[in-house]
Nucleic acid binder design. Structure first.
Lengths: 171, 171
DNA sequence: TTCAAACCTTTGACATTTCAAATATCGTCC
DNA sequence: GGACGATATTTGAAATGTCAAAGGTTTGAA
């Protein structure tokens, strides 16, 4: 068993023990966090094993795949919820792998636009199909009605959180 | 719930579902991920500004706070869903700050047990109280009934995911 | 007893992450 | 046209994250 596989599936159960006097919000947050970590790790493992890619790279390419003309790095930063400095490095590595191209438009030389190469589009297209299948498989035991309901209600949570941020906010 | 609210919610489902042609599972995953990132970033920012601490450090200390006798690093790794190698560095830094103590028990010299110092307990206790308040604030606009429902349904998702991991390891 | 397998942690190479400060360019106001 | 504020990206330091491999230590079976 590799190290990454040893991660516990029951983080949240351990964290909160039985279910003592913990507040609803805290319990929900712990469960959201552990579930998200669990799914992320699974996707990360499969991306690595089957495509030799990382999750942040996949996320970034997903944005570029939706905008074939490319995106400015700042826009990429907003959409992926990753800091500017981080985007710089991610795009650098993807460019080194021939998956992404960087262009500075004539109009504004402050700007860098990243777009997928032919190779990048091909590769992402394969990854995206697999990615969608993995998620369907992982959530196979959950009723579609529950999934829709979750999507709606998590939207409410996201909305509430967005309205109660202390500092600079996304979106 | 008012009439207009339920109408708009239903509309949104129909529109979104037909519009993107995306599978339910994928849409749910993207929303879970962005919401979790949003909350994480807010907590990280507040931990940093108000306590000079990081989120991984907080998570690790939370586990040690629940087990006053301390925990082996491997157990810490499972509970925090962080790799062993990563735990080593985290504990190292916390020990350098005087928040955590490392001990090798006489019985088994392969093992390292980490436990909170007095200073660590005091500091974590303050952070935990604040942390719980932040979550209550962020989710203030969400009905308690919805929060409970989310907690249950995300539990179903987590359960389904756990049963469909490629690594297929269970505790 | 002995030694190979199993166990626990650390190490090393990289990738990702944040924040803050530095660079570079643009647009505008005077 | 020159200085200034706003915008866009990069850089640098430190922390976190993964994975694979290496280090000790213990255990169990021959």
């Amino acid at each position: 068993m590799t190290e990454s596989e040893s991660a516990s599936v029951d983080l949240e159960i351990i964290v909160q023990g039985a279910q003592e006097g913990k507040k609803l919000e805290l319990r929900l947050w712990l469960r959201m966090l552990s579930t998200t970590k669990l799914i992320s790790q699974e996707i990360r493992r499969r991306l690595r094993n089957e495509f030799g890619a990382t999750l942040p790279q996949f996320d970034l390419m997903a944005q570029l795949y939706r905008e074939r003309e490319g995106l400015r790095l700042g826009e990429l930063s907003k959409r992926t919820m990753v800091t500017n400095g981080n985007v710089t490095g991610l795009v650098e590595r993807l460019e080194a792998d021939g998956l992404v191209l960087r262009v500075t438009p004539d109009g504004d030389r402050r700007v860098t636009v990243a777009k997928l190469t032919e190779k990048g589009e091909t590769q992402f297209s394969a990854m995206a199909a697999a990615h969608e299948g993995w998620l369907r498989d992982m959530m196979a035991d959950v009723e579609p009605a529950i999934i829709s309901e979750l999507w709606r209600d998590i939207g409410e949570v996201k909305s509430s959180v967005s309205n109660h941020l202390s500092g600079a906010d996304f979106d």
